[in-house]
Design a protein around this nucleic acid. Structure first.
Lengths: 213, 213
DNA sequence: GGACTCTAATTTGCATACAAAAGATCGGTA
DNA sequence: TACCGATCTTTTGTATGCAAATTAGAGTCC
């Protein structure tokens, strides 16, 4: 084990994101410390980090809880995600390398095949790497930090399980169009496609019932 | 003193922002602990918070240093600031209360007088409260967190000392136009004016020498 | 003279111990 | 029975001590 505090951060963060610790769950320091076999000191540092990143709320003398998101929070988060992801796409368009473009094209094909065969795990993996490349190509550490804060919640829910086949095909089409926009080194195009992409994702997540909002 | 960790955070943050700890300065834990009369434990928690917020960099087993910003960092930060502040203005336009609007108008007048009399301290104070109201009216905790991360650096430099009289008058004019846009509850107008406002600020900070870039 | 190595000193990372605050439990009173 | 208060328990906040890692420096060899 490298650093205990780092380990604690990773473990708790992962547990929150994959739903092992549901929203509202109490995170006792001793409890976590014993579970990880370390002392409370590094646990506290990990919880402070998670607090700043918005994953946990901690009240003085009362301990930490997993943040629970209201409906308004979710809307707010998606608005920010739309803003930041499309901005990242625009920046990436004028900075992305040919190597990264090649990899993105591979991922796009992989994902199309995964959609065809219904392999949800693989879809998620391809999607994650695809978007990861774009964010890195935006080459702004601060932007990446902000995006992480805003992507975390969707991660919890974005299992692709509620995507219909049509939704998935549209998603693949967006990826394809993004690759073209990047090849053309066209920031405005990339930004616009990315906006559509995230808006579509929000609509899927919001559920069909709210289509008319 | 309420909580030692909170106190340490406030003290160190303020010292960084007002320049007492210049970029690159080493922040030893024992040194800070003795200076504040507390132990290293709360100091460490404060440093972790500052790390996530981007104000300090900490390397494993090597301690913390005040972040030093490259020229590219500064550009990157201003791009994000433009994005986020104008977004906040748009949100605020449809949410701001009449009371807040009234206070903003007072501040606008105050600031105009301060510009006339050359009171730089007062200009800065009015400006800070004016923009604070807008950010609060945007009513997005996450957005506020992000803006703080992006406004911190400008805070270090934005002393208004390098503003010419013309720059200051333009700034006041922007504030005046913002009040009108908010009164009209016009998000697009508010967003656009805010974008101009921040772009102008960047140009002042960048220095006249780079006008042709 | 310069580079390398081994050692000593400083500093961070973590664990443990203690103090203080919040929460729970039990008893008493109306 | 319902409500209030005091004590006890649990949990957080902080201090201190120790181990590991990094850095600084002296001495040595080429």
């Amino acid at each position: 084990m490298a650093l205990a505090a780092e380990k604690a951060y990773e473990v708790v963060r992962t547990a929150i994101l994959d739903g092992s610790y549901p929203p509202g769950e109490r995170l006792g320091e001793v409890e976590l410390a014993e579970a990880l076999g370390i002392s409370r000191t590094p646990i506290r540092e990990a919880l402070r980090r998670l607090e700043v990143e918005g994953l946990v709320e901690v009240l003085p003398h009362r301990g930490a809880r997993v943040t629970s998101w209201s409906h308004e929070d979710l809307d707010e988060i998606y608005e920010l995600r739309i803003l930041l992801e499309s901005f990242a796409a625009a920046r990436a368009a004028s900075r992305i390398s040919d190597g990264e473009l090649g990899r993105m094209d591979e991922l796009r094909q992989d994902m199309a095949r995964a959609v065809h065969s219904g392999d949800v795990e693989r879809i998620a993996a391809c999607n994650a790497e695809f978007h990861g490349i774009i964010r890195r190509a935006a080459s702004s550490t601060r932007l990446v930090t902000m995006l992480n804060a805003v992507i975390q919640l969707p991660l919890v829910l974005q299992t692709f399980h509620r995507y219909t086949h049509e939704d998935l095909q549209r998603s693949v089409a967006h990826h394809s169009e993004l690759v073209h926009a990047f090849r053309a080194r066209d920031p405005a195009w990339a930004e616009s496609v990315m906006r559509s992409h995230v808006l579509a994702a929000r609509r899927v997540l919001a559920g069909r019932s709210r289509d008319e909002e």
